[in-house]
């Protein structure tokens, strides 16, 4: 009990720190993240450049701040698309069941057995690489996982006697779906949202690392890792900074989830 709370607390601290870091990056960065400096290529961490500079002499700290913003943006948009459509689909199919539900769930099961990064690769191979293409691809791919979670919760809840009571009172279906049942899926939805966000961050990083997501010169955490890898020997800091930020983000949201169990 006590330990879970410590983990949860740690998660809160990490998430707050990372979010603050990203928010500051939206309004202020020490240098222009895309400004090159030929005289300071692959310079190590110093007082003026705490995380060093990359192969073009760009300030790694500024780029990480900006890049994390891009990654968060992709993550949030993805989760928003996936959750909005997933909740609606999951609620309707879970509550009403029937043929529509059966077909949708078969498709869902099929999609779920494939790793989402592979499906994202397929979609991007058609739509072409780019930030918005990536958001759309990941967003659509996240719908099934949300729909599945919400659906199974609705199947459980609709059998509860309080739903039967509501029906007997003459409450409309829409009100039962979204006023009576939805609040009871809160705990599960919250953890689905954080897990979804984590998966989105990881997927963005993976896709951009493969140069199929965010395109240069824009920075994102995955993009930076991809660029830094060739200079791992001479400038490991430009790979470590974005990588560690990914780990802290995912760890933070993961720990935040601990209390639910």
């Amino acid at each position: 009990m006590e330990k879970k709370n410590i983990n949860h607390r740690l998660g809160q601290i990490l998430v707050c720190a990372v979010v603050l870091f990203v928010l500051i990056g939206c309004f202020y960065t020490p240098y222009d993240p895309n400004e090159m400096n030929a005289g300071l290529v692959n310079a190590g961490p110093s007082l003026t450049h705490p995380f060093g500079t990359d192969q073009f002499g760009r300030d790694v700290l500024s780029r990480v701040m900006k890049g994390a913003g891009t990654t968060f943006f992709v993550g949030l948009c993805t989760v928003a698309i996936g959750a909005a459509a997933g909740i609606l689909l999951g609620a309707l199919t879970g509550y009403y069941g029937g043929l529509f539900d059966e077909i949708l769930m078969r498709v869902n099961d099929g999609l779920a057995s494939f790793p989402s990064i592979l499906l994202a690769l397929v979609i991007v191979s058609i739509s072409g690489p780019g930030t918005y293409q990536l958001i759309l691809a990941l967003g659509v791919l996240f719908i099934p996982s949300f729909a599945r979670v919400v659906r199974s919760e609705y199947i459980l809840q609709k059998q509860m006697d309080y739903v039967k009571n509501a029906k007997l009172m003459g409450v409309s279906d829409a009100r039962i779906l979204f006023v009576h049942i939805l609040p009871n899926t809160g705990t599960i939805l919250r953890s689905a949202l954080t897990i979804g966000f984590n998966n989105a961050v990881l997927a963005e990083a993976g896709m951009s690392y493969l140069s199929l997501g965010v395109q240069p010169p824009d920075a994102s955490l995955g993009r930076m890792l991809s660029e830094a890898q060739s200079y791992l020997f001479s400038a490991p800091w430009s790979a470590l900074a974005p990588g560690i930020l990914i780990v802290l983000t995912v760890l933070g949201f993961g720990l935040l989830n601990e209390r639910g169990e």
């Binding site: 509860m160 006697d161 309080y162 039967k164 009571n165 509501a166 007997l168 003459g170 009576h180 009871n184």
Partner: peptide, 29 residues
């Protein structure tokens, strides 16, 4: 017709206050 069920833990919506649950029926009417 209204029903009273066996399991008093499942027949009341766990995320709502007692007052809300009782009022809902009045709202509907």
């Amino acid at each position: 017709p209204q029903m009273v069920f066996q399991d008093p833990y499942g027949s009341l919506n766990p995320s709502k206050r007692i007052g809300w649950i009782l009022e809902e029926s009045l709202k509907m009417r």
